[in-house]
Design a protein around this nucleic acid. Structure first.
Lengths: 115, 115
DNA sequence: CGGGATCCGCCTAGATACTG
DNA sequence: CAGTATCTAGGCGGATCCCG
């Protein structure tokens, strides 16, 4: 049994998926690899996500220690930047691997499928 | 926009997650890396999954061309073996990366978290 | 600008019983 | 042995409106 942040997982692979699984988390992390981004910059990178969902996923990633949220202003308009933590940086090879395989599949144009 | 098997994804990373995301798919794939397994052997490796869910996830992985299902008998008791396809084999580095990070996190005992 | 509040649909996954 | 059938709950994620 594997444990992280109070949650239990039956397999080392499911622990990782518990942290980066779901529809949007890897996409967020993927965009944060290159540089820190503001909330609205993330929205522009991910045009189909809703505000609520983006907000929830960011909060979840922050709770798991993968990203950090830095607020630069006290009065509106707010400026908030999201970036990977040191711990989040250890995930970069995993995210890259996931992203690269997606690119590989697209390039292969399904030539290897269903044999 | 990225496409595979009739589904569309907004990011190369989400394409991959669309295929291996969810609570159980990576766990199944992880166990199939080493050797082909029968249905009940998979159940023993994953004691907490329900029959129905295992069945659904196997079917989904098969539809996506990642695993193949081979039936060895026509009369009950049936013998069915699941294994990775050639296409599924291309995922092994990704699954390994995911699994290794889970092990890494467990070993680190949360020493890098939330800085 | 960066969210929170509210409401809601749908899908994932569980529990249990049953079958070829 | 390897599933299917049925029912159900909970959570993920969407839509919309609102606020400091």
């Amino acid at each position: 049994m594997y444990t992280y942040n109070g949650k239990e997982y039956p397999c080392c692979a499911s622990l990782t998926m518990g942290l980066i699984g779901g529809k949007w988390k890897t996409v967020i992390l993927f965009h944060l690899i290159e540089k820190k981004l503001r909330y609205n910059e993330l929205r522009k990178e991910m045009p189909t996500v809703t505000e609520r969902t983006l907000s929830l996923q960011l909060k979840s990633l922050e709770e798991d220690g993968l990203i950090k949220r830095k607020v630069y202003t006290t009065k509106p308009p707010l400026k908030v930047e999201y970036s990977l933590t040191e711990f989040g940086n250890t995930l970069i090879p995993v995210i890259q691997s996931i992203a690269n395989w997606g690119i590989f599949v697209t390039k292969e144009k399904n030539s290897l499928i269903k044999n």
